[in-house]
Amino acid sequence: MIKQLAVILIFSLITIYFISIIKVKFSSKYFSLRQIIVSENQDITLVGLILTFSPPLIISTFLSFLTAQDKLQTCIAYGFLTSFLIVWPTLFNSRQLLDTRTYKKKNSLYFIYAIYVAIYMLVSYGGYIICSTISSNKVIYEITLPRFLQFYSSLNVLYQNLISNAIWLVIVYVSIFAYKVILKKFVVTTQHL
């Protein structure tokens, strides 16, 4: 029980770290709860919602694969703990963290935070559903390499070439992207020396 809670806490902290990176990298698109409370801020976008809620979905899916038992309880606890760790400073210290206009809407803020926690738990449940779907024998059987190769060899040569070109396109694109990221980091670090 304690070990499971420690694992949930570690994954919650990892999620918060990823969210902080996303918030810095995509500050113009990131969805913040402040956008709901203060209406003068920028509009809420679908991309912002996806950026905000994809880390808990991905990590809860990964956490479901790692846990041997009580997968659903682990995912729900993970979603609750992660969302609570995100909003708890404002819950317990709202007078000093919020401006006066937002503090006047404190009851609405608590309601929004409760919905935020519920959405995080629902997204974590989605991660559990993804894990359960992938773990079922039928899905694993349908996406195995021998079955794909059998399907590939039964295709016309034209379709085989299209599939192989698409695979190579993905490999080359990922390689170029990784090279640019590594090169950019190398150039930035050498300029600071």
Rank of each mutant, 00 (worst) to 15 (best):
21 I>H: 05
98 L>Y: 07
105 K>P: 04
84 F>Y: 02
50 I>P: 03
177 F>C: 08
144 T>F: 08
160 Q>K: 14
52 T>V: 10
155 L>H: 03
144 T>P: 07
99 D>P: 12
95 R>C: 07
70 D>T: 08
101 R>E: 15
25 K>A: 08
24 V>K: 06
187 V>N: 09
21 I>W: 01
51 L>C: 00
100 T>Q: 15
111 F>W: 10
122 L>K: 03
52 T>N: 13
190 T>W: 13
81 L>I: 04
12 S>C: 00
134 I>Q: 03
153 S>D: 07
165 N>H: 12
46 L>D: 02
37 I>Q: 10
180 K>R: 14
158 L>F: 12
21 I>V: 03
19 I>W: 08
44 I>L: 05
160 Q>M: 01
56 P>A: 02
45 T>F: 01
96 Q>A: 13
80 F>T: 06
19 I>V: 13
150 Q>E: 14
95 R>L: 11
169 L>R: 12
129 I>Y: 13
33 L>M: 15
81 L>A: 02
10 I>H: 07
19 I>M: 12
30 Y>I: 11
9 L>C: 09
190 T>P: 00
183 L>F: 08
81 L>Y: 05
81 L>P: 05
69 Q>V: 06
132 S>L: 10
64 S>N: 13
93 N>K: 10
172 V>D: 05
121 M>F: 02
147 R>V: 10
69 Q>K: 13
140 I>K: 14
153 S>V: 08
192 H>F: 09
184 K>H: 12
96 Q>M: 15
190 T>D: 08
103 Y>L: 07
143 I>A: 06
116 Y>S: 03
141 Y>K: 15
167 I>A: 07
166 A>F: 04
162 L>I: 09
14 I>Y: 07
85 L>S: 01
181 V>R: 04
62 F>V: 15
168 W>L: 10
13 L>F: 03
30 Y>A: 02
46 L>A: 11
49 L>G: 03
182 I>C: 05
29 K>E: 11
176 I>M: 06
24 V>H: 09
113 Y>F: 14
102 T>V: 13
112 I>T: 09
25 K>I: 12
9 L>G: 05
14 I>C: 06
4 Q>P: 04
167 I>D: 13
135 S>C: 05
115 I>K: 09
11 F>E: 06
156 N>Y: 01
108 S>R: 11
130 I>W: 01
79 G>P: 01
187 V>W: 10
183 L>S: 14
78 Y>V: 00
187 V>I: 09
22 I>W: 06
8 I>R: 06
110 Y>T: 07
189 T>N: 13
122 L>N: 05
43 D>A: 10
158 L>D: 09
22 I>Y: 08
180 K>G: 10
136 S>E: 13
57 L>D: 03
95 R>S: 14
176 I>C: 01
19 I>N: 11
181 V>I: 08
74 T>N: 05
171 I>C: 03
10 I>A: 03
81 L>T: 04
173 Y>H: 02
112 I>A: 06
29 K>A: 15
85 L>A: 00
147 R>T: 05
